[in-house]
Design a protein around this nucleic acid. Sequence first.
DNA 1: CCCGCACATTGACCTCGGTCAACCCCTGCC
DNA 2: GGCAGGGGTTGACCGAGGTCAATGTGCGGG
Lengths: 240, 240
Amino acid sequence: MRQDVHNSSIPVLCASCEARHKGICGALEPDQLVALAKTSYKQKADGGSELIGDAERVESYSNVLSGVVKLTKTLSDGRQQIVGLQFAPDFLGRPFRSESGINAEAATEVGLCSFPKGAIERMMKASPELEHRLYQQTLRELDEAREWMVTLGRKTASEKIASFLLMIARHIDPTADPDRTSATFDLPLSRADIADFLGLTIETVSRQLTKLRADNVIRIENNRHVVVPDMERLELRAGN
Amino acid sequence: MRQDVHNSSIPVLCASCEARHKGICGALEPDQLVALAKTSYKQKADGGSELIGDAERVESYSNVLSGVVKLTKTLSDGRQQIVGLQFAPDFLGRPFRSESGINAEAATEVGLCSFPKGAIERMMKASPELEHRLYQQTLRELDEAREWMVTLGRKTASEKIASFLLMIARHIDPTADPDRTSATFDLPLSRADIADFLGLTIETVSRQLTKLRADNVIRIENNRHVVVPDMERLELRAGN
DNA sequence: CCCGCACATTGACCTCGGTCAACCCCTGCC
DNA sequence: GGCAGGGGTTGACCGAGGTCAATGTGCGGG
């Protein structure tokens, strides 16, 4: 599959890139990778900076290489909802549409590898395997979106918070054993973001977090660092 | 694109099928269509019958030819959320996974054209155009799911109801001019289903519907038949 | 025709989570 | 050091929507 023995043909830009292993670039042959790398560039974006505007014409796609990107939708009166979170090595962009219909914003500092829209779309026509990977990711995103619809529509505030912490723990914790009994991680989102993600207010988020802390389900240090001594107890609170 | 002049090679089963025009079967060449038609069969399902079970192994995919299918998820204590609605000629099934993770149930009487799982997956490998169409549909479903996340997370009960009626009007009304000022349609869902879709209770659904009726935004006949004299007034209530 | 059943409506009451406001804590800047 | 500003917490209060229960309505079957 990968050719690590003689990979002098792999562009320097891509050599150690996560997107080449687990992301969509893994679908490309070395020569295609070279062609794509010519037009692509890595960049950093500060937390809070807007990556894609709602109605603005999108001219590029990106891979998320590090950090967390939040996808949001906003009603005319300002009410906001986060409709997705993207972690490395997710692909960022809405193929086959000039306007994305959603906003993308860096939740943390974010590393991106960006390509012009046309380059990806041409390559997609040439390589069914690339389109296949994008399709797979979209299916996963759809599964996740539907999972969150249940959370938004039917769970209580405290179940929402527990579900959110579980989801983050599963995505972020570097010690990635899915069966581990404890977990430790930094929240990539502010209280306001968590509220926008769960359809709550910051006050309710705060209250539910202190409740979980009071019940010794979690510990919180410096507002962002979370320790979950017993994942099962947290799962119990998520109400699945 | 289509070959209507000499289409004796099109299988009888598919000749007048909507899925061949607007659905995924339009991606297939006549000979592929013949091959697929050999293993496929049309069927009717009564409203309320289960089409795909949550954890049950899925052995077939289908096209929805008529009626409405609701996709649901259920928590262990019975709370239910509808996470998607499928109308003709949508494709029904979760490719690349043996278990769908969701339930599919006929909301109304439903017409289906079903294929064995393997047939589609083999054909997908052979025809990138087929996979492309499935990808496109999945992208549309993802857009819709995210749209509903905003509704679930941030809208009030009355905005939810108005948004729901708008969505149905756009999908169902046979007089399909998107800029028409009035609309008439039958609700494909019971009050209980609407509640499960919007994250509400049947009582709240009922109350909000009577409020819309009291304010002359809609008329309702026989519990199911809805008349919207002025779509703009309904849009105003949806709070986008 | 009447009964029984499923679905829908309506009312009375209560609760969860939103609102408003005070306060805390930390960090960066003068 | 002091102060301003942003993020987070906590408390008191309130209201949208949930809960529980009674009532209404249409329909198929005996």
